[in-house]
Design a protein around this nucleic acid. Structure first.
Lengths: 152, 152
DNA sequence: GTATTTCATACCTTTCCCATAGGGAAGGTG
DNA sequence: CACCTTCCCTATGGGAAAGGTATGAAATAC
């Protein structure tokens, strides 16, 4: 289960937009420099975010990108979905279309529960939460547990 | 965030072993047929499981595979790790080695909380739980919520 | 010895990931 | 209008991973 570079970059660029929110568009080059993301690669990601309704763009003179809505109305899940599609998939399919036989039948609700737990995190955290370092309590509690940081 | 075919197949094959546990080894061909998994592909997966200490094998005559420990002592996380490596990674790295700057700094605890929540599911369910259709309460509660089954 | 089954290696095809390059389209400025 | 800036689109490429196949060697049961 991996978070791709695209998704990670997308969230970080969106956070940079959230923190600079003042009506003025921010250039891709500025985002790229601030978060150390390859410039041309980031442009493609921003295109996905625009098509996904996360950001809006303005061309020309002092163009750039802006969040399409307030930062507290955009969740991490929204951003990840815009660039990666479905949050959790099994063998490329959404869990709900899978069919299992024999002793594997109860495996389906396990995948569904897994997806629900992932969503609880990613849909529960907004860009504003992160940009202002005010993570929701459930997330904070999980992250404060030292066991969550151990390696294997 | 995807569960690969390898991981899905690995869990299903292990479940098939769990349910046939009677001291007699089960052939790869039988597992392959029971769960509709390409035979040769499954052999490679079973090699990973053996190297990961999940199953033991016997060659020849009436050889085959057996679980290396009792089914209630093997979690889904154990099986997935044996074939996929770390459960959750960001850009190919474990979350704990990442460093973020500026407004993205609190993104790290978000990824860590995500991983913790994934582990809570996958480390909390054993092969025996699934094979006997006795999922732990936390998992059952998540899966019983109809919202967990909705598509997007 | 022979049949059976795992084990190791290599190979193949397709797709995704990460990234770069070039030019066109749209908007501002003088 | 000419000119500059910036986004926008398409193409390209190397490399890895995913998914699957083939072949033969090694071990074990009978």
């Amino acid at each position: 289960m991996r978070i791709s570079a695209r998704a990670d970059y997308a969230v970080r660029a969106s956070l940079e937009l959230a923190v600079r929110e003042n009506g003025e568009p921010v250039k891709a080059e500025a985002l790229s420099a601030a978060q150390d993301i390859p410039h041309k690669f980031l442009e493609g990601i921003l295109s996905d975010l625009r098509r996904g309704g996360i950001v809006v763009s303005r061309r020309g003179g002092n163009g750039g990108y802006l969040l399409a809505r307030a930062a507290d109305a955009i969740t991490v899940a929204d951003v990840v979905r815009a660039v990666e599609g479905p949050i959790v998939s099994v063998r490329g399919e959404r869990p709900s279309v899978l069919t299992y036989s024999g002793p594997a039948q109860p495996l389906l609700p396990v995948w569904v529960a897994l997806r629900a737990n992932v969503r609880k995190i990613l849909e529960g955290v907004t860009l504003d939460d992160i940009a202002r370092d005010r993570l929701p309590d459930p997330v904070r509690e999980l992250a404060d547990d030292p066991a969550a940081w151990r390696n294997p």
